[in-house]
Design a protein around this nucleic acid. Sequence first.
DNA 1: AGCAAAATGTCAAGCGCTGTCATAAAAATC
DNA 2: GATTTTTATGACAGCGCTTGACATTTTGCT
Lengths: 336, 336
Amino acid sequence: MNERANIRDVADLAGVAVKTVSRMMNGHPYVREETREKIERAMKELDFRPSVAARILSGAKSNQIALIYDNHSPYYMFQIQTGCWDFCKENGIRLIAQPVDVNDDDVGDQVRGLIMETHVDGIILSSPVTDCEPVLRTLDALNIPFVRISPGTNHALTSSVFMDDAQAADDITTHLINFGHRRIGFIKGHGSHMASDERMFGYRRALDRAGIAFEPGLVHEGEFDLESGIRAASKLLSMAKPPTAIFASNDDMAAGVLAVAHERGITVPDLLSVVGFDDTPLARTVWPPLTTIHQPMADLARTATAILVGGGDITHTRLPHQLIERASVAPPKDTE
Amino acid sequence: MNERANIRDVADLAGVAVKTVSRMMNGHPYVREETREKIERAMKELDFRPSVAARILSGAKSNQIALIYDNHSPYYMFQIQTGCWDFCKENGIRLIAQPVDVNDDDVGDQVRGLIMETHVDGIILSSPVTDCEPVLRTLDALNIPFVRISPGTNHALTSSVFMDDAQAADDITTHLINFGHRRIGFIKGHGSHMASDERMFGYRRALDRAGIAFEPGLVHEGEFDLESGIRAASKLLSMAKPPTAIFASNDDMAAGVLAVAHERGITVPDLLSVVGFDDTPLARTVWPPLTTIHQPMADLARTATAILVGGGDITHTRLPHQLIERASVAPPKDTE
DNA sequence: AGCAAAATGTCAAGCGCTGTCATAAAAATC
DNA sequence: GATTTTTATGACAGCGCTTGACATTTTGCT
């Protein structure tokens, strides 16, 4: 039950003034190497840890930032958290991960509370909180720096990091087209994610470029989960003239397509090609493993954190995606 | 840019003394209902949020707790976090989720830092940090309350919540036996998780009870991930006399088994029954959907949080598991 | 009216740190 | 060698809140 050592104890033991210890901790100039070492030794000996609370109270930076998210995909969140945490750990910053519900009437209030109570220095917003008006307004009113990961709107507002969803969707659609597919079903993502529209846009653009007419009947709304993938696939595969390939806006829905195909005895990829998006572990876990787009989630988060902590001007950073070929795509069978 | 309101502002506006506001916030007796309301109104009007920092500094509880974990299963962590968060949100407690690496030489130190810097009131440990000696020692030295989720050792040490891994493994093994299986392969989990041994124990107990001799060749080590499941399954299915059923210690490894079976044209469940453990979304996503054990992760976490916050004596709470039957089990084919 | 219990107020101290301003020591300048 | 400048350190107040010791006022009951 060793008593908690405070800065005074350190100062006493090192034989210097409290202020000097403070200077040393905060990397001020004007601290002699010799003194620094003396203090360091004292700190070690007392196992001293500065109290964040005291620090905050006296008006300094808290060295804490918050990650605010509302995403029901465990894997996505895991990656995002990991990316942020990595950076924070390396830089001695405390990260407070805070889930919210963008549909709560008082999200704005919750965020306000978080900021005022914890005195975080900055905020990272992950989709779809990136586009949640009440939150954005609160942040703005509080004048606290924040950066957004994959925002869908208002790009100019703050720094952001993102990938090119449209291009990625274009890429993978083109991939399918290159295999000879002309009837490509598309399962759209959840409406609240701006990325959904982007991906759809990319899909259409690829079609256009290849001179394939867009057919609304080949598009179904999904919600980024297995069940909606199943529903959409059922409809798609029950068509008089079903698609020879299906592009699902994320891997979960693609898994749903696979399930339906299995059930109906439609072998993948021989009779039906399937592609997903995100490259979650799921993509490698299902059978056959999915061709998909690798979204660099952890990288996005890491970069966002670095930008936030680094301060500086507003920047917009695009990170590259990657087409991952696995075993779920093959040329269409000519069964006309 | 409204100035941050402090307790004095509230007191002034409400026409009471600062002390009274403090009394009211901290739930002291001797505050009239009428006064309470007056203060509440003032708080609302000023949008007052007490500074956690100031509060902590003056020796009060911080109303913050930390969840410490080191688990590389996104879904598991997501559930655990969700459980903790739900409770915290309802009870106005701030949760600080903190990942660590149990193999770091300075885990103990990191945890010590976390506690001393943030002044958290208590800690929740999730497996496998539950059994990480350095952390346990630190917590003990700091004399801070903590509760553990599914600890593997030292049950008496602190409060804990857990499920009966051995019984669950026994149940699912018995399930297989009841279907007529006699040669049941087992893929063990990662050595650092105590649950791995428990599950193995349950497997053996079920075998024993059914009078089936334990065969070491039917057991392989895994690491709770897809790849190790694939490796183990490859060995198991290459045996001269392969098992007719495989019990993988978690769903990911079971998915690995499925992948190998697919590749070799062994249809599941006709030619091979497969069961998993945990009931992650994966279990429903793969084909065929897996029979598995539902582990009430979010409930475990929620309960743990409630116990921690509630204070009180050391308690040990067992939460029930559940056998989830899906489509991956059938009677063995007599191919002798 | 009289009295205990309940409700509120006053005041001072202190939690652990950092900011401002002042001062001392060392180095640079003439 | 005296003066200015730079570098290094110290003294002290104060951040927003809680707490404790008491003093005072209000309330509810006989």
